[in-house]
Amino acid sequence: MAYLITKENIKEVLNALIAAKTVYAPKKDAEDTVLFEKLVNASEWHGDSLLTHTTAKDKVYLQSERFFKIKKDKNGVTIEDPAEPEEIVIFGCRPCDARGFDVINKLFNWSDFVDEYYTKRMAKTTIITISCEKPESTCFCTSFAKGSPVNETGSDLLLTPLKDGKYLAEAYTEKGEKVISDNLKYFSEAAETEAKEKEAFKTASEAKIIKKLDLAAIKKLMEPAFESAYWETVHLPCVKCGACTFVCPTCYCFDITEKAFDNMNSERVRSWDTCMSEIFTRMAGGVNPRSDTKKRFRQRFMHKFNYHVDNFKEELCTGCGRCIKACPVSIDVRKVIEGIK
């Protein structure tokens, strides 16, 4: 069932959520960086920017996840599990961010191995998404089967701005319904006409997305293009930093390391890693199957739009366009994969 809520009341709901749980929402700092940060009051919420500089991914899939503590003593070794994750709310992310969680969910539940650090945290996370009114020149979410400025995949609750400062609120999961039922006084029931208004919103918003890629055709081109001379030149501007991978809502590669405090105490930590890094695939002894920059550049795009599709039947990308903006040399993922020959 759909509901209506005003912008003022959204802030009331936000305050109610802040009182009960940890709420992360876009917040702007002195350097104009908009990041998902812990809110103390709804007034800190910065809803004007389309996208935050980094994704909300790091709230569930932490950049450095402490797996467990290891204590050595004369009797041997004890492994101490971390505390259970707390309930959190990610408020005000965009449909592309929310869909990113859906994409990574599949990875962490892949085959027989379920990553419980991620799944436990995900189970305690409520995602409240706001549809995009003004997509930017870097957006290309409509290229994906499930992508659209009003898509609900991955969201528990989706808010779509309508006329007169009202928002259409649609819950897609129990967690989303609970947000509404707990704060029912701020919501009013929506009528048929409002559902139609959402359709109009969708059409208008999608029209602003200037680029739509034919990903099926691109995948067909990619399969035989592994040895293509195309890769020889296209990677040249790339400086091989990890900005694109770290701001991506779907990039998931990680490394497991140990952080030693002293001789007896240490901690196993999982940290994000990037396929752009030279040491990503370097083996002990120095052999590196992806030694040169061309190979690493190719791996990133091949993984996202070819290999991942083979394994999961969907691309490892949601079309948010953050990598395009974050790239110090403005490499455009759309141009890179479109140009494959």
Binding site: F108, D273, C275
Partner: peptide, 24 residues
């Protein structure tokens, strides 16, 4: 085959050759 591996079950993303993960 041998390749750099970290997780052992196809999640950490480094040991792939095409869509196959050496570890999995």
């Amino acid at each position: 085959l041998e390749m750099k591996m970290k997780c052992g079950f196809g999640k950490c993303g480094r040991c792939n050759v095409k869509h196959l993960y050496i570890c999995k």
